[in-house]
Nucleic acid binder design. Structure first.
Lengths: 260, 260
DNA sequence: TCTTCTCTCCGTACGTCGTACTGAATAAGT
DNA sequence: ACTTATTCAGTACGACGTACGGAGAGAAGA
């Protein structure tokens, strides 16, 4: 997560940026004003967002099309554009919505526990909304819930007293870890929405590999790990091991600093 | 990275799996047989893969369409299907190709150095081929170069002497870290291929956010980090800090084990 | 040599997608 | 009652992956 802030002219903030950008920011932060003139809206923005999440949950994120979402709502596809600027923007709104249910750790706890709670909270979120992983989102939306979660993670990490640069890196480290574990867990569980192929079917289809090209001589370590059953998922502690190693490393860093 | 192996009947391996799966595995592992009967091919599989990589490098992975790749080669779109089963499969071949240039660390080095070299090698690869990050690939292809790199990382990590389950987790931890840092670095550098918007343009368009909804009171830690300049990229040591913390944590684990 | 069979190349076409444009219906402000 | 802003949605355009089928090339069998 990398947040840059551009140079800004010192005028009225409500004219900064582009109209589209302003529109999107408003959608994320302000409830949509109910409109004065024309006919009443058949739906609310929330309904559209929730329908989008329902489609993504049911059929996978590749099936998240304007037509599908509209169909789920019993509306024409183009009608959605009065609620939302476009597909990508709808997706941003869905993401911020997914972050909304996250609870923040008690600020009185030691930093390490707070970070752990944050990580578990993120892990739960990825379990609940696997489409967060499937999406190749390349930038977090600037929505209130996403930003609050970010801030809270940074806050927890900075309780270490480490310099800002290292706080930022450690926060990123934690997030990458959770994301990575979630990605591999979800990959094994779910279905490729592109093709409708389950994980099992994928491995079945390529099973010729194991007989013809995979040899224990070429891949001795992977073979040993495989045969030990260590590739199988553990139950519930997926992120814990890596998180523990990672935060142990941070604690060492703190000790080294204070020794000086 | 999670590798499952399905149950396999004890017969001729060349009949395992599906025809499509076998085709793909052969494309990855064996040079394509030059075909007996019909007209000579105008291209080679390698040319197709390289054209795909060229398109992805030039215009981004979203522009990687069969039509675009074919155009780059001066061929009809459908002709590609004699070389490659489809778009997804072409992409798998491109990935294995990207891994091909990676060099393996000296096996005589201590495990930690080997893992570090592996991580830097991956980092370099992501820098060279940013489309590896942009793609929301959900499973690594079973190609020789990808598999060799995997095996070598597992091998290096198992020099720690830790149990297999932990070796697997630590390897995943390292990969997630490099992937995460690469993702955020590439996001800041490059262009959203969907929209053709650069990172700068993105921040400009949304700059109204900073004036209207972002307040230092709500986001004190992010503000402090921002003002210290810590969000700016360092030069060259992007992955080093996190990697050091992470491997410090692993070393502690090893010490604890041997103390017993 | 002539036929047959297989393989390459690729034009056409179908169903999907995001969304620009347009126009009809609607309701508030005047 | 008239004006004006807004919603809803049909149609259409240009992208996409790729199924299908046909034309032509060249090796194998007669």
């Amino acid at each position: 997560m990398n947040d840059e802030r551009p140079e800004i002219p010192d005028t009225d903030p409500s004219t900064w940026g582009t109209p589209e950008g302003r529109h999107m920011i408003r959608l994320l932060w302000d409830p949509p004003e109910p409109a004065g003139r024309g006919p009443k809206q058949k739906l609310t923005l929330d309904q559209v967002i929730e329908a989008g999440m329902a489609v993504a949950a049911a059929d996978g994120v590749d099936k998240l099309s304007m037509r599908n979402v509209a169909a789920k709502l019993g509306v024409g596809a183009m009608s959605l554009y009065t609620y939302v600027p476009g597909r990508d923007e709808l997706f941003e709104l869905m993401i911020d919505r997914a972050y909304a249910v996250r609870s923040m750790p008690d600020r009185m706890l030691p930093w390490r526990e707070q970070v752990e709670i944050h990580a578990r909270e993120a892990w739960d979120m990825y379990q609940t909304h696997p489409w967060l992983i499937r999406s190749n989102l390349w930038r977090m939306p600037l929505g209130p819930h996403v930003m609050d979660a970010q801030e809270d993670l940074y806050r927890a990490v900075s309780l270490t007293g480490l310099p800002h640069r290292e706080v930022a890196r450690i926060a990123g480290l934690v997030e990458s870890h959770v994301f990575g574990v979630a990605r591999s867990a979800i990959t094994d569980t779910s279905v490729s929405s592109n093709t409708g192929v389950t994980a099992d079917e994928y491995w079945d289809s390529r099973s010729s590999f194991w007989g013809t090209y995979y040899t224990p001589e070429r891949f001795p370590t992977m073979t040993a790990i495989w045969e030990s059953g260590a590739f199988e998922q553990a139950l519930g502690d997926e992120i814990e091991f890596g998180l523990a190693r990672l935060l142990d490393g941070v604690e060492i860093l703190i000790e080294r600093r204070t020794d000086r």
